[in-house]
């Protein structure tokens, strides 16, 4: 697995692929989809697909691929080696969603939630397999959200292919376990060797599992909090763990689409104009004393100043 395309720019989403085995283009195939790193506040989320001819399903089972979560990192690396050795009939593809991609998508003006992001990433990977000539007949998917809806969505999107969306699919279907191993191996390697684009000098890499409840992760998040910038792009800003820490320890930042702020601002403005109205009627001063500037200025947000 060559991670250099992602390491070159780890702020964006990146696709890594194996060669497509010739046999997958001629024989009916099954394909498994799984993800790694959905929960952590650190590092990328990786989507993986793995595929092989239906006729070789059992051979995949014999490789003893199992749910990646029950394996140690070393065991996963080992199994990935085995998958690589089986490259004559097993292919895979990965989509690495950088933490920056996750943050900026989830915090977009028009919110783009993680489920939508995940589903679209999975769909894109399946489409990639189809476009590469893989003769897909069956798709197996591990899911976090409601299985029925997702299964329906995928079946609609890929007519003629039998779609099975199932919680814990990675322990039920070897092809999903294989996808899960590819995804997890990629995520582990990326997190371990994270290339900080920020100029932070030597960064302590003892960030634990990356899960918000891991004390090591928590300690790391406290250590690397910058009062103005918050965090390096390694951190998912959209996670409440990061948000809460920034709310309490970093300076406040306000955007024009902060809903509450927007309301507050509107309120403030209407208060102000109400106030000026009252002061006018009470003081008997000319209400329209304030001069209305030419639209050249209002369109350019240019105002006269009365003091510096």
């Amino acid at each position: 697995m060559d991670l250099s395309p992602f390491d070159d720019d780890n702020s964006v989403s990146c696709r890594l692929v194996s060669e497509i085995p010739e046999v997958c283009k001629t024989e009916d195939c099954c394909l498994g989809i799984d993800e790694a790193g959905r929960g952590p506040v650190l590092g990328p989320m990786v989507y993986g697909i793995c595929f092989c001819p239906l006729s070789r399903k059992e051979e995949l089972k014999d490789l003893k691929v199992a749910d990646s979560k029950t394996l140690t990192e070393a065991e996963r690396e080992n199994l990935f080696e085995k998958l690589d050795e089986a490259k004559s009939y097993v292919g895979w593809a990965l989509q690495i969603l950088s933490p920056n991609t996750i943050s900026t998508c989830m915090l977009r003006r028009t919110k783009y939630n993680l489920n939508a992001l995940s589903h679209n990433t999975a769909i894109d990977l399946v489409q990639y397999a189809l476009d590469s000539g893989v003769q897909l007949k069956e798709i197996y998917v591990d899911t976090v959200g409601p299985a029925d809806k997702y299964e329906h969505k995928l079946s609609q999107r890929f007519p003629g292919i039998q779609v099975t969306v199932r919680p814990k699919a990675d322990s039920l279907f070897p092809v999903v376990s294989a996808a899960s191993i590819c995804a997890k191996v990629a995520r582990d390697r990326v997190v371990k060797g994270w290339n900080f684009t920020e100029d932070l000098g030597e960064v302590d890499t003892d960030y634990g599992s990356g899960y918000p409840n891991d004390p090591k992760t928590k300690a790391w998040l406290l250590k690397y909090l910058d009062p103005v910038f918050g965090y390096p792009q390694f951190v998912r800003f959209s996670w409440s763990t990061a948000q809460t820490l920034m709310d309490s320890k970093a300076v406040n930042v306000h955007w024009d689409d902060d809903e509450e702020d927007g309301e507050k601002a509107a309120q403030r403005q209407s208060n102000k104009s109400m106030l000026s109205y009252f002061s006018v009627s009470a003081g008997g001063n000319d209400q329209n004393a304030t001069h209305q500037a030419h639209r050249f200025f209002t369109e350019r947000r240019l105002k006269s100043l009365n003091t510096l």
């Binding site: 920020e198 100029d199 390096p232 792009q233 300076v251 306000h254």
Partner: peptide, 19 residues
């Protein structure tokens, strides 16, 4: 394009320019 409630030093080069 945002209001940052701070007047003072910030690691602009390290975090912003570098990325």
């Amino acid at each position: 394009p945002c209001e940052i409630e701070h007047n003072g030093p910030a690691q602009v080069n390290q975090y912003f320019t570098a990325t």
